[in-house]
């Protein structure tokens, strides 16, 4: 975002009447991304969401270095499940482990799952969508058939089924934490690329008929270069919006799986796993559920608002 800043300030600083007098050639250049940033800034909720999300990400990244309590250490000095106190700002869980440390640690995993799963689904979706949109015909029909089929799969039961069937083998191969991480990220990614594929296909189909693509073709640019260098950058808007919203839904899906007991192993404190651990102590220790739940809620809310703002900024026609 910071690279786009100078162009924005110059635009705002230029007196429009003066610019009009000097003629179009003298007018300060407005970049496409500068315009988008300006529209994004007008969306107050999206700006607020971006700020709050930055705070959450920073505290999760830096937090464990400042707040140095071991998330796995059992503190025998504090009564089990005690609420917030001076020694443990957010309280402790049923085994006497510090909840703040566990939430900071868990946030890293939850956010990482969201990001990596999003990257996977966006890459898959972009690849499939661009091939389908660019080549059209039989290729398009075949790929869109697969996309429709994936859209018709019952999502959550399928996620649960695959995790149930493959989790033991993967945790044996890569260790419990890495194995489950790979499995969850892979599965969430593989079941969520369809929206991106459809968006990218639609953009490719309309952009490939533009004159600049024809120009590139007549200059002898290879098909792959046309796809990657000429068409793809023009389709970035909807991809970015979808990618943002995908992070949120991946975080929710991970926490749902963890909440159902199909996610990370017990000593890996993701936000969903913390909720799962706390749900049986709701009456005695509500803090064990409230804090991790609030973190998931706030993070996803921020991401959804940012996605909404980005849609206004990058893709104003497809407003919902």
């Amino acid at each position: 975002m910071s690279e786009a800043n100078p162009s924005l300030q110059t635009t705002a600083g230029a007196n429009s009447a003066e610019a009009a007098l000097q003629g179009p050639s003298m007018r300060k250049q407005r970049s496409l991304w500068g315009d988008a940033l300006r529209r994004f800034r007008k969306h107050h909720m999206a700006m607020a969401g971006a700020c709050l999300l930055t705070i959450i990400i920073l505290s999760v990244l830096v937090g464990p270095y400042i707040y140095r309590t071991d998330p796995k250490a059992i503190n025998l000095m504090i009564p089990s499940m005690q609420g917030p106190s001076a020694e443990a700002p957010l309280g402790v869980d049923d085994l006497g482990r510090d909840l703040l440390a566990r939430i900071l640690q868990g946030g890293r995993i939850s956010l990482a799952v969201g990001l990596v799963a999003m990257l996977l689904s966006v890459c898959l979706g972009t690849l499939i969508g661009s091939i389908a949109g660019f080549f059209g015909g039989m290729v398009d029909q075949f790929l869109m058939g697969i996309t429709d089929m994936f859209l018709a799969l019952p999502q959550l039961p399928m996620l649960m089924l695959t995790i149930y069937l493959f989790r033991d083998r993967l945790s044996r191969a890569f260790g419990p934490e890495t194995g489950i991480f790979l499995l969850i990220v892979f599965i969430i990614g593989v079941f969520n690329w369809m929206t991106v594929a459809r968006l990218v296909r639609a953009s490719f189909m309309s952009i490939k008929q533009k004159e600049f693509v024809e120009a590139a073709t007549s200059l002898g640019v290879s098909q792959i270069a046309i796809m990657a260098r000429h068409i793809l950058p023009n389709a970035f808007g909807p991809i970015i919006v979808a990618a943002t919203l995908d992070v949120g839904s991946a975080i929710i899906q991970e926490s749902v799986l963890s909440f159902l007991g199909l996610g990370f192993p017990p000593d890996t404190p993701t936000w969903g796993r913390l909720l799962y651990d706390g749900k049986d102590f709701l009456e005695i220790a509500p803090h064990m559920v409230l804090w991790p739940g609030l973190m998931i809620f706030l993070t996803v809310l921020c991401i959804n608002y940012i996605g909404d703002g980005l849609r206004d900024a990058l893709d104003p026609r497809s407003r919902l």
């Binding site: 559920v289 998931i296 809620f297």
Partner: peptide, 13 residues
């Protein structure tokens, strides 16, 4: 917005 951002398990709890 809040309605579809809150995961159902959190609302429930």
């Amino acid at each position: 917005f809040i309605g579809f951002s809150v995961p159902t398990f959190f609302t429930g709890l």
